[in-house]
Amino acid sequence: MTLSVKDVSVVIGATTLLQNVTLDLIPGQFLGILGPNGAGKSTFLKVLSGELSPSHGTVTLDGIPLKVWKDEALARRRAVMPQASQLAFPFSARAVVAMGRWPYETLSSSFQNHRVIERAMAIADIRHLGKRSYPVLSGGEKQRVQLARALAQSFGTEDETDSKYLLLDEPTAGLDIAHQHAVLKAARDQSKNYGTASMAVLHDLNQAALYCDQVALISNGRLVASGATAEVMEPARLSRIFGCTIKRQAQQVKEALSFTSSL
């Protein structure tokens, strides 16, 4: 019952974007993807979501290749929060969130849809924006609406037992610090409370250390290391990958790791 990437390579033209990556998304775990710009993090997310078919290797959900899955059945299992989404038409923020319920159109009552949408909007802290027109929201507000939409999609229906997959592409980009924490907490809560396999492409080492159960490091299209956060985030390894000096210190208060970096 996992979303598995096995020996996947992505080659576009003469460029190799991903090379022999093997990784499982495990239900109940929040996985952070770290790596320098252009390392292949977003490509990896596209492979996981089924947007990009790998040139080599397989991506399977519950043992069945993603290509075999019907779009609609797949949409009930995994939700994606995109990096940026433009919408030229005056939909209200709430209507955009409600679009996340599309895969459950026939399966879920309007009462349940309503509750799920309200909950997703509360988590993303956009209840006060519900009636505002999406195109005129600020960048950060748009991001939060997209988060709520992805959450509404991944909440599913009450009687479902299949594990869900929530893929977030740089969910903290453009958000203020409080909302960055809120987004990461939402993803972690989904994993902890509902057994969702969450995955986020992140840039902040401290946030990854604070929220993620697992971390995968990607550099030059290769998976350098993956596993439990504390084991993977070795200062020497991080320094090598990111090309700058990274030091680690154990924080006494919360037992979380903290990192400082310098060139």
Binding site: E72, A75, R78, S85, F91, M99, W102, Q153
Partner: peptide
């Protein structure tokens, strides 16, 4: 009309929401 609504979000987003784009 229903699927075309999701198209407005973007083709990729519509596909992620289960529309056979």
């Amino acid at each position: 009309s229903g699927p075309l609504n999701l198209f407005l979000l973007g083709e990729t987003e519509a596909k992620h929401l289960g529309v056979a784009t």
